[in-house]
Simulated assay, not measured.
Amino acid sequence: MLNRDKLTTNVSLLGGFSLALIGTTCCALPILLVALGMGSAVVAMVSTLPWLVTVSQYKHITFTLTAIILAYCFWRLTRMTACEPGSQNTLKWQRRALWFSSAILIISMFTAYLLLPLSLWLDS
């Protein structure tokens, strides 16, 4: 029998993780590569994946959608309890994946919105 709550939580976790990775790819990764002196890698990445330019133009929507999905995942996981013998381990891994996705989102948002103003402020 298929556990609907577990399936819904897994799908929303996967969606949040995927959107967090897209946010990293469009915003944090190019800034990191340019800072490391690999600007040509960014040019190659953008020419290979032109949709990254569109995603980076609408990064506020991407980050907001990711935050909403991750908040939904937090809400779902706080409501779930381990009733079956093997489900305690599953809940533990789901919580770890959720915290990892949240960390990726926070790092991406910091890089996309605060890194440049912070570096300009430190230089002055």
Score class of each variant (00 low, 15 high):
residue 36 L to R: 14
residue 31 I to V: 10
residue 57 Q to A: 12
residue 57 Q to L: 08
residue 76 R to D: 07
residue 80 M to D: 03
residue 26 C to P: 01
residue 29 L to E: 03
residue 81 T to D: 13
residue 69 I to V: 14
residue 64 T to W: 10
residue 68 I to P: 04
residue 26 C to E: 14
residue 49 L to K: 10
residue 64 T to H: 03
residue 57 Q to K: 10
residue 59 K to D: 01
residue 70 L to S: 05
residue 64 T to S: 10
residue 68 I to S: 04
residue 50 P to H: 02
residue 41 A to S: 13
residue 42 V to A: 01
residue 52 L to E: 08
residue 61 I to N: 00
residue 55 V to W: 03
residue 23 G to I: 02
residue 40 S to A: 03
residue 39 G to H: 01
residue 24 T to K: 10
residue 40 S to E: 11
residue 51 W to V: 14
residue 36 L to D: 07
residue 52 L to I: 14
residue 47 S to Y: 00
residue 80 M to A: 13
residue 21 L to C: 05
residue 29 L to W: 04
residue 21 L to H: 02
residue 25 T to K: 08
residue 64 T to V: 10
residue 43 V to G: 06
residue 28 A to W: 05
residue 42 V to W: 03
residue 62 T to V: 15
residue 54 T to M: 11
residue 33 L to A: 09
residue 35 A to N: 15
residue 37 G to Q: 12
residue 47 S to N: 09
residue 46 V to F: 14
residue 51 W to N: 02
residue 78 T to D: 06
residue 34 V to Y: 08
residue 30 P to N: 04
residue 42 V to C: 04
residue 60 H to G: 02
residue 81 T to W: 02
residue 66 T to Q: 04
residue 80 M to R: 12
residue 58 Y to F: 08
residue 70 L to A: 02
residue 56 S to C: 10
residue 48 T to H: 10
residue 41 A to M: 06
residue 41 A to H: 09
residue 24 T to Q: 14
residue 77 L to N: 12
residue 57 Q to D: 00
residue 69 I to G: 00
residue 60 H to W: 05
residue 60 H to Q: 05
residue 76 R to M: 13
residue 36 L to T: 06
residue 28 A to G: 12
residue 79 R to E: 03
residue 55 V to E: 01
residue 35 A to P: 01
residue 59 K to F: 00
residue 57 Q to S: 09
residue 72 Y to T: 11
residue 32 L to M: 06
residue 54 T to G: 15
residue 50 P to W: 06
residue 68 I to L: 13
residue 31 I to G: 12
residue 69 I to H: 00
residue 80 M to G: 03
residue 52 L to Q: 11
residue 80 M to Y: 11
residue 56 S to W: 04
residue 40 S to W: 14
residue 65 L to D: 08
residue 59 K to M: 03
residue 71 A to F: 15
residue 31 I to S: 13
residue 51 W to L: 15
residue 52 L to H: 04
residue 23 G to S: 04
residue 21 L to P: 00
residue 31 I to C: 14
residue 58 Y to E: 08
residue 30 P to Y: 06
residue 39 G to T: 11
residue 40 S to P: 05
residue 78 T to P: 06
residue 28 A to E: 11
residue 31 I to F: 02
residue 59 K to Y: 01
residue 78 T to F: 07
residue 82 A to H: 03
residue 45 M to Q: 10
residue 63 F to C: 07
residue 23 G to E: 00
residue 41 A to T: 06
residue 32 L to G: 07
residue 50 P to M: 02
residue 79 R to V: 04
residue 40 S to N: 10
residue 65 L to E: 10
residue 52 L to P: 13
residue 75 W to I: 14
residue 57 Q to G: 12
residue 44 A to N: 15
residue 31 I to A: 13
residue 28 A to Y: 15
residue 51 W to S: 09
residue 66 T to N: 07
residue 57 Q to C: 00
residue 28 A to T: 07
residue 82 A to N: 11
residue 59 K to W: 01
residue 44 A to Y: 03
residue 63 F to E: 01
residue 23 G to T: 00
residue 47 S to T: 02
residue 25 T to H: 11
residue 62 T to A: 15
residue 53 V to C: 02
residue 79 R to W: 03
residue 44 A to G: 11
residue 29 L to S: 15
